[in-house]
Write a protein that binds this DNA or RNA. Sequence first.
DNA 1: GCCAACGTTGGC
DNA 2: GCCAACGTTGGC
Length: 153
Amino acid sequence: MQYWLLKSEPSVYSIAQLAALPGQTDSWDGVRNYQARNLLRDQMRCGDQAFFYHSNTKIPGIVGIVQVVREGYPDATAFNPQSPSYDPKSHADAPRWYSVDVHLLRQLRRTITLAELKAHADKLADFPLLRRGNRLSVLPVTAEQWHFILALE
DNA sequence: GCCAACGTTGGC
DNA sequence: GCCAACGTTGGC
């Protein structure tokens, strides 16, 4: 099993929205970066777990844990002209963008903030989220990083 | 709102 | 294929 971190701006899609769904399961869609797309399409497996990270908000940080319940499939929002993520260059017979489905395992008892993660830069030296200029919205997390971060909770 | 960092686009 | 211009991300 592998571990990941999934970023979302809470003003666009928050963990509360996922938690409010009947099955607490939803598609993770709208990713429009090729490197992140490749991870969604090729690397993420059913059973993998991921941190749900709130970005571009007052207190950015990790707010919950989700599990992959459906592996990469074409992102339907790319085909939908009504969607803000619509991409006319993505076609059903040659999809450009991919989604996975995630199920909420639990919300954290408190947010593990970005500031707090940075304070542990010694332990998290290779954590991609802390790398300069990082903008990827899907990031791999090592088992060691995963357990260290969860222990902060 | 600012701005650094980075990805994408498109002319050549 | 190069690279300048532009758009986006995302912390602060």
